[in-house]
């Protein structure tokens, strides 16, 4: 995990100290409920709720916003596309030659709804990352009896994501060293060809590395079994405390109450 989140997760607020399993279940519960919300107001409340907790645990917003730039890009793309492909009440229209382009209110609402769903889910995961180290999250998954193969895949993905990132950086440097212009448009045929070749080489190298990693695991006696046996027995001091459960219930209940208010027609 990157240093930014590692530093954040090393803080000692009451939310940082909560049991990891409770945090994982609460966040998953929040995402599950919030993604089923149909009203913009309900989702806005849910998103604000997460942002308040993030602020309370000392998370600086500006680096978070920078890291979530892709979410905003995605949201922008939705707003650019959805108003023109969703049928509904017309709010504006343009004539381009024989073509008539119409934007609808329903399309804009749908785009905002989807964007808020994505934002609230990503912020909830950010809250988990900001208050729990990656190692604790992995151990939390194990304690929640997530299949060892899945936990292993998550661990490997994160570990080798950085290794591949370093490899990509070295390849980028090597291209620059041979006078390649990194700022040229990706619609340039030569640039597209280079990018395709880089992806192909990275894929082939990843295959080679995967084989070497597997060999290195076999060399240390790996036989396909889970090696996290030490996590299976939960010690007394690791048991979930009443305070953890109360926090988890409160967190999920808040989100659930938004859903109930929405279902009752009080918001929407």
């Amino acid at each position: 995990m990157n240093i930014f989140f590692e530093q954040l997760s090393s803080k000692q607020t009451s939310i940082h100290k909560l049991d990891t399993r409770v945090k994982i279940i609460s966040v998953v519960g929040f995402i599950f409920i919030s993604s089923s919300l149909q009203s913009i107001l309900g989702l806005a409340v849910g998103t604000t709720f997460i942002m308040i907790i993030l602020k309370a645990v000392g998370t600086p917003f500006s680096p978070i916003v920078q890291r979530l730039a892709w979410v905003f890009l995605f949201g922008g793309a939705l707003i650019l596309v959805f108003p023109f492909i969703t049928p509904g009440r017309e709010i504006s229209s343009w004539e381009v030659g024989n073509l008539s382009i119409t934007a609808t209110q329903e399309g804009i609402d749908k785009a905002i709804l989807l964007f808020l769903r994505l934002l609230s889910a990503v912020l909830a995961v950010t809250l988990l990352n900001a208050t729990t180290s990656f190692r604790e999250i992995i151990n939390g998954f194990r304690k929640l009896h997530m299949p060892a193969i899945l936990v292993g895949i998550i661990e490997f993905t994160v570990r080798y994501f950085f290794v591949l990132g370093e490899e990509l950086t070295r390849m980028k440097l090597a291209r620059r060293a041979r006078a390649y212009d990194l700022n040229q448009s990706i619609f340039n045929r030569k640039a597209l060809k280079t990018i395709a070749q880089v992806i192909a080489v990275l894929f082939i190298r990843s295959m080679g590395r995967a084989e070497r990693v597997y060999f290195a695991m076999l060399a240390r006696g790996y036989g396909g079994e889970s090696y996290g046996k030490e996590h299976q027995a939960i010690k007394r001091r690791e048991r979930v405390q009443i305070a953890d459960i109360l926090w988890g219930i409160g967190f999920v209940c808040f989100t659930l109450s938004i859903k109930l208010l929405e279902a009752g027609g009080f918001i929407g």
Partner: peptide
């Protein structure tokens, strides 16, 4: 494999755990 240990050329091929301690314990746990 318990009698012969092998250290690979590139340590990134061999180390994959979240902490050094966890990685070193991989072989003995196996």
């Amino acid at each position: 494999r318990t009698k012969v240990g092998m250290v690979f050329q590139d340590p990134d091929d061999q180390i994959f755990s979240m902490t050094v301690r966890e990685d070193v314990s991989f072989g003995p746990l196996n």
